[in-house]
């Protein structure tokens, strides 16, 4: 009990000591950004990100250590594959110390995107308490190699503190609302994707889930970001019922 507490206290201090930045979001999202940055530094990583999920399989990026990692974290959602999703689904850490070793067949789209960005190793830790699951913490490294036992323990502790941060934020939230700052981060930033999903569902007379699959397939085939395609759909520059996509 005491030993575990010491780790939590030490890692919590690392997060608390992390200076805020001008662009930081308020509330929980800002705290998670500092956690990602502290985790990245402590774990000798090039970047880290926290993704949170809503019911119905919708996931969203809550925070990243550096803006450059936002698209990488987001891409897992666009492609529907990646270590964060696996860690969440399997309820256990996903450790890939060498991306060139089997990851290409596991996540064909995501692994090559990581490789293009200079990521050589990736580790993902589920954010969970009991049977409840909140999301995952991703740690990206520019060099091949495993986490040391100490780093592994620290990473799990960062994940625990991310859970506490989310739950404490939710405990203070207005009834019916999400923890302060998370609404905008997780949903607001991607509002157009959800709107496009609704529009495509009506255009083709299909379910929302199928509409998302069609949007993903289109983005993949055209080699474009899912968010950009969604914006075009909402602006009616792209329509799925005119025979074009």
């Amino acid at each position: 009990m005491t030993v575990v507490d010491e780790f939590v206290v030490r890692v919590a201090r690392l997060v608390a000591d992390e200076p805020s930045r001008p662009g930081d979001h308020h509330g929980v999202a800002g705290k998670l950004r500092r956690l990602c940055t502290a985790a990245g530094r402590t774990l000798s990583a090039s970047g880290a990100g926290v993704s949170v999920l809503a019911t119905g399989g919708m996931r969203g990026v809550a925070a990243v250590s550096e803006p450059a990692y936002e698209p990488l974290e987001e891409l897992q959602f666009s492609l529907g594959e990646g270590p964060c999703l696996d860690a969440f689904t399997d309820r256990r850490p996903v450790l890939v110390p060498d991306l060139s070793d089997g990851a290409m067949s596991r996540w064909p789209g995501y692994a090559s995107a990581l490789h293009d960005k200079g990521v050589r190793a990736v580790f993902a830790f589920p954010l969970q308490i009991g049977a409840a699951r909140l999301g995952a913490l991703d740690v990206f490294r520019g060099e091949v190699g495993s986490l040391t036992p100490d780093e592994f323990r620290d990473a799990l502790t960062f994940a625990d503190i991310a859970v506490m941060t989310l739950l404490d934020g939710q405990a203070r939230a207005v009834p019916g609302a999400a923890a302060d700052g998370l609404d905008d981060e997780v949903v607001g930033q991607r509002a157009e994707l959800f709107q496009a999903q609704g529009m495509v569902a009506v255009q083709l007379g299909i379910s929302l889930a199928d509409a998302l699959a069609r949007l993903r397939a289109y983005a993949y085939a055209e080699d474009r970001a899912l968010g950009d395609v969604a914006r075009d759909v909402v602006a009616r520059r792209v329509s799925f019922d005119s025979g074009r996509p």
């Binding site: 809503a54 019911t55 409840a132 699951r133 909140l134 989310l166 939710q170 998370l182 997780v186 949903v187």
Partner: peptide
């Protein structure tokens, strides 16, 4: 967790 997910989902 249920409250958080429910709130995000309704958005």
């Amino acid at each position: 967790t249920g409250q958080l997910q429910g709130a995000l989902n309704s958005r």
